[in-house]
């Protein structure tokens, strides 16, 4: 498995074509845009060859791609008049989790999402999307606000995990995650989770469960990062690729296990090649799923939410 090529090498041709499209989009001459569809077809053709040979580790690389759309990009596209809420009212404000309200398709929706940061400076500021307890407490605060006003909650999941730091432990990282899970289990409003990139363990779970979990085609959701798993079980970083394979953490795996409700297709080359197409795909599925949930009574939703997780697990009983 060591000769496995980096995804960044595989996608080179596609990236060049994408840059061409970006250039054409900037042009003032409308005729230039007519050149875009044939280039898109070329991307599609290239992708058809690459896609079948992608390994789970490649999927991880796509999910973590530095050019991949992040929470704030989705909010820009999906919402009107998004207003961000800050602070957990106890200890601070966590820039790794963005929370707030916006209009989505004609109704108010609370959004909660991990934000990784694009530039080095932003990444440090956002702690690479790894929340501290105050992030989870802020998220819960906003969920409760949504419940108060009767608005649905949509979460966007994209984190390597909860931050493993001294202060995080002092302020109760584990308890903050646990408390969110317990509270989510009885939140009266509809709650939909969309895994847009990395679904890193408890750090993702604390805002990553609800009535329906949707996953982008090349995202993953896992109990541990493949690197962490390789270090602990194989005691060898070279086993990362094998760990990624063994953990079965791709969207299609979770679908098969009955954990998620929908897989949202990504454009050829992955979400970062065509933001707009990605947003359109997310919008379409999200709206469908939300509408269906909104038509149910809170009691029915809570019962189904409990049952959804109640039945997850594989064991035998004689």
């Amino acid at each position: 498995m060591n000769e496995e090529k980096d995804f960044y090498k595989l996608e080179k041709g596609i990236v060049l074509l994408k840059e061409k499209i970006d250039g054409l989009l900037l042009s003032e001459d409308p005729r230039e845009r007519e050149k875009i569809p044939p280039i898109k077809q070329k991307i599609e053709k290239k992708w058809e060859k690459i896609r079948p040979n992608l390994t789970p580790l490649h999927i991880v690389q796509i999910a973590r791609h530095p050019k991949r759309p992040y929470t704030m990009d989705y909010l820009d596209y999906l919402t009107d008049d998004f207003m961000e809420m800050h602070g957990d009212r106890h200890a601070g404000d966590d820039p790794a989790l963005v929370t707030g309200f916006g209009f989505y398709r004609g109704r108010t929706v609370a959004f909660i999402g991990h934000q990784k940061g694009r530039t080095t400076r932003q990444r440090i500021e956002r702690n690479f999307g790894q929340p501290n307890p105050e992030g989870y407490r802020k998220a819960l605060r906003v969920m409760k606000l949504a419940e108060k006003f009767g608005h649905p909650v949509v979460t966007l999941i994209d984190t390597p995990g909860a931050y493993p730091g001294i202060k995080a432990e002092e302020q109760g990282q584990a308890g903050a995650i646990a408390y969110n899970l317990k509270e989510i289990s009885r939140l009266k409003i509809p709650m939909v989770n969309v895994v847009i990139g990395e679904g890193g363990s408890g750090g993702a779970l604390a805002v990553g469960v609800g009535d329906a979990i949707l996953m982008l085609e090349y995202s993953f959701y896992s109990v541990i990062s493949p690197e962490g798993c390789a270090a602990i079980l194989w005691k060898d970083q070279k086993a990362t690729s094998q760990a990624a394979l063994s953990l079965k953490m791709e969207a299609k795996d979770l679908m098969e296990m009955g954990i998620i409700e929908k897989i949202i297709p990504e454009p050829p080359g992955g979400a970062h090649i065509d933001f707009e197409q990605t947003f359109k795909n997310v919008d379409k599925t999200l709206n469908q799923v939300l509408k269906k949930l909104e038509s149910k009574s809170p009691e029915k939703r809570l019962e189904e939410r409990y049952k959804k997780f109640r039945k997850i697990g594989v064991f035998s009983e004689k």
């Binding site: 899970l181 363990s201 779970l205 896992s222 953990l247 079965k248 954990i259």
Partner: peptide
């Protein structure tokens, strides 16, 4: 794997 995570 993720089956364990969902037990949380």
């Amino acid at each position: 794997g993720v089956l364990s995570l969902m037990q949380l």
